[in-house]
Design a protein around this nucleic acid. Structure first.
Length: 119
DNA sequence: ACAATGACATAAG
DNA sequence: GCTTATGCCATTG
């Protein structure tokens, strides 16, 4: 599964203190409308995975985990541990000035995708 | 190949 | 701001 591997590889490369939206991940994977697929990939992750899935949120800066029980609190805690500021409504500021969105360089993304492709 | 599902995104009310 | 409806992509039966 290239797509899943790419998603995992990309998410793994998200630096601490930064987050990424499903749509953004899909964009980096050359699938601008593949946000759902990204969510599916993260959903397929095991419990003790080394992928920082908590750094992936929806476009509204909110936690979308609906199937996973209590994953919301989990993400909130994990992100707080990463110095990620939350709004009063429990949302993350995805403003450009906030700099919370991880914006990797094209070559970096290319490298990551290439690595995922190799296995 | 078709139909159904899902940790999404966007537009309209 | 929240709910409803539509579109999108990958996976599964």
């Amino acid at each position: 599964m290239k797509f899943n591997d790419q998603v995992y590889a990309l998410v793994r490369c998200i630096p601490r203190g930064k987050v990424l939206t499903y749509g953004r991940v899909a964009m980096l994977l050359d699938v601008p409308r593949g946000a759902r697929a990204v969510g599916w990939a993260l959903h397929a992750l095991p419990a003790g995975t080394d992928v920082p899935w908590h750094r992936v949120i929806n476009a509204q800066g909110r936690i979308s985990t609906r199937c996973v029980t209590h994953a919301e609190e989990r993400q909130h805690q994990l992100l707080e541990a990463e110095d990620v500021k939350f709004d009063k409504s429990g949302r993350v500021r995805l403003e450009k000035s906030a700099g919370i969105i991880w914006t990797p360089s094209p070559w970096e993304v290319q490298e990551i995708l290439d690595q995922a492709r190799q296995g």
